[in-house]
Write a protein that binds this DNA or RNA. Structure first.
Length: 465
RNA sequence: GGCGACGUGGCCAAGUGGCUAAGGCAAGGCUCUGCAAAAGCCUGAUCGUGGGUUCAAUUCCCACCGUCGCCUCCA
């Protein structure tokens, strides 16, 4: 068994084999820092987080690099509008981004390089490309010469002639070819600028990722990821620059996630509006529910975000949570039938994930196992007997970034004491068979957002809102 | 116009050339419970339409209808 990933470059699923031993060099395109992230970003980063978790689960050693684009037209524009600096803007949104990703249980990358910290490498690469005849200077700008790159278009699978035929881009007459793109842009007055052989300027959009990859990973990487929207031109240009500069194959696997949208609308993206921000989503749903909702669809299929859909995922998680709620440390005691179920679930989980990250199928394996655990408990298995299977369920859930913890709702000490008193009162009434009065107390608790459950072990309660 | 993807039970969504077409939500019935809640059990689909290939297709091919993505900035 081996992991197969769909590679955009070959348009096929191929077996994943790292270039060097079990070391995986992975680079995922990070956000442009001119505004806050939205749940479309969350989708992409949840998927690549899951890929990373799975690679680690499979025994690979992963170096995950994710950039921050902190210099770009939009950022300059936004900084000017908000009367601030690009640095301040970047700092603000980086802090927000990282904390939002944390709250979605997305593990941090190993390195977060920033474009502005890669300027010397960007200049070195640009210079190198000019020397090779792959780029040319024009009034302080430097453009990549797409016609000099014989396989330009190989990633997005289109030819220059096709693209130019249907071009919607305003043509800059000075350029050699309409598709030539900027590696370096001369700065206008008042714009951030760095000294360069071509005068004061700043990097183009695509070269930063090539430079940061070179700095962090070297000339060749295993996995390059991002949303399908950055496939062209961003990744196409990246591959062109990097390979023209190094003369080597750049990324071995290109992985692109499909995009998120709202029902009946186009993709969620910042320049179209119609965004749902991460704190808003988290105020209504647990991070587990958001992840389960997203991972319930294959990453290469577009997904419509609906509140009902996430709610359904939340309710589904209750079944998984119930399965592990009384988990104790696994010991020698085990339920053989259950151990068999756990082994089957693990096998199914791996089979699914090996097949190009079939997270929906993997989730199915989790539900199968949860059902067996809940059934075994119902049939009288002790916590000790359930423990090993529960450990498996928690381990596999964690690969998907699911904690299976009850969503927490803060309860003050005062409130807690009051609830305990009411629960005790109700139980006294029940013991006296005064059920009508007991139900009255329960209604009172429900009113407070408290859900109670009676069992042989006593009455438990939880706050649900 | 070019390239590409998708259309599976009420909703979401895996999947396979022939073996019971996963799983979740919702609905109905049942078990448990004083009643509930939770959990468990049971109940439903011939896979957009029309052709073709094949002993056999939901699964391959073609056409059509519908939805969507990229071709400018975008995860």
């Amino acid at each position: 068994m081996a992991l197969y990933l769909y590679n955009t470059l070959s348009r096929r699923k191929t077996e994943f084999v790292p270039r060097v031993g079990n070391h995986v060099a992975m680079y995922v395109c990070g956000p442009n820092l001119y505004g806050p992230a939205h749940i479309g970003h969350a989708l992409s980063y949840i998927i690549f987080d899951t890929l990373k978790r799975y690679l680690k689960f499979r025994g690979y050693d992963v170096k995950h690099v994710q950039n921050f684009t902190d210099i770009e037209d939009r950022i300059i524009e936004t900084a000017r509008k908000e009367n601030t600096t690009i640095q301040a803007l970047a700092e603000k949104y980086i802090a927000r981004f990282l904390s939002e990703m944390d709250s979605l249980n997305i593990r941090r990358a190993d390195v977060y390089p920033r474009a502005t910290e890669a300027i010397p490498t960007i200049i070195k690469m640009t210079q190198g490309l000019i020397e090779k005849g792959m780029a040319y200077e024009l009034d302080g700008d430097v453009y990549f010469r797409v016609r000099a790159d014989e396989d330009y278009g190989k990633l997005s699978h289109r030819s220059l002639d096709e693209m130019e035929a249907g071009a919607r881009v305003a043509v800059d007459e000075r350029k050699n070819d309409p598709m030539d793109f900027a590696l370096w842009k001369a700065s206008k007055s008042g714009e951030p600028a760095w000294d360069s052989p071509w005068g004061p300027g700043r990097p183009g959009w695509h070269i930063e990722c090539s430079a940061m990859n070179l700095e962090q990973h070297g000339p060749q990487i295993d996995i390059h990821g991002g949303g399908q929207d950055v496939l062209f031109p961003h990744h196409e240009n990246e591959i062109a620059q990097s390979e023209s500069y190094t003369g080597k194959e750049f990324a071995h696997y290109w992985v692109h996630n499909a995009l998120l949208h709202l029902p009946g609308q186009e993709k969620m993206t910042r320049h179209l509006g119609g965004l749902i921000y991460i704190p808003d989503a988290l105020s209504r749903h647990s991070s587990d529910a958001i992840r389960a909702f997203i991972l319930g669809t294959h990453y290469r299929s577009p997904l419509a975000w609906t509140e009902d859909g996430v709610d359904a995922a939340e309710r589904g998680l209750d079944k998984l949570r119930a399965a592990v709620k009384d988990a104790v440390a696994p010991g020698p005691e085990a339920n053989d039938a259950l151990s068999e179920s756990a082994a089957q679930a693990r096998e199914k989980f791996i089979t699914m994930m090996d097949d190009d990250l079939n997270t929906a199928g993997a989730l199915g394996a989790l539900y199968d196992l949860a059902r067996e655990i809940n059934r075994a408990r119902g049939e009288g298995s002790s916590p000790a007997q359930l423990a090993a299977a529960q450990a498996t369920l928690l381990e596999l859930a964690d690969v998907l970034g699911l904690t299976l913890r009850e969503p927490t709702h803060a309860v003050s000490a005062d409130e807690s004491a009051k609830i305990d008193a009411l629960v005790a009162e109700r139980n006294a009434l029940r013991a006296a068979k005064k059920y009508k009065e007991a139900d009255g107390v329960r209604a009172q608790l429900t009113e407070m957002g408290i859900e109670i459950a009676d069992s042989a072990q006593g009455t438990t309660w939880k706050k649900t809102k």
